[in-house]
Amino acid sequence: MRTFFTLCLLFISLCVKAQDIPEVTVKNLAGDDISTSEFKNSKDIKVISFWATWCVPCINELDAISEIYQDWQDETNVEVIAISTDDARTRRRVKPLINGKDWEFKIYVDENQDLKRALNINILPYVIIVKDGKIIHTRTGYTPGSEEELFEIVKQHTD
């Protein structure tokens, strides 16, 4: 079994390329369906963070980005999208939390985790950077300072 996985992995890693963002429907805070194909329609770089209200490192990351978001936007046209993967237990906390925290990000909800599953996300937080509908960078987990690395990548890809 282990050899099998190793083989798969070796084979796949030889072929890694920028992936298209899969087409899945998420909801905005008003409950309207939003297709992820809308993320492809803009030239601007998007930083998409998958988070949950109960995930402390996720909140730490979004708080940290929130504080420097104005600087990011002054320098580039980057847009930060925070996609909540909260399920029925905690989903109702999303709206008051983002307002209470004064986050300026665009917020979507992936309640039964269709997008999370399509991207094979196992643990949170999970960040992808998307340009022209292609995923150019992914990162899992948060440690203080990771947000600066993210911005470095955004700047590198800004025309």
């Binding site: 084979f11 796949i12 030889l14 072929c15 992936q19 094979n120 196992n122």
Partner: peptide, 18 residues
């Protein structure tokens, strides 16, 4: 996997291993 062979095919493939 072997029959896929080419990386072009892999471009439409998403993989998650845990």
């Amino acid at each position: 996997f072997v029959s896929l062979g080419h990386c072009q095919l892999i471009e439409n493939l998403r993989v998650g291993l845990e």
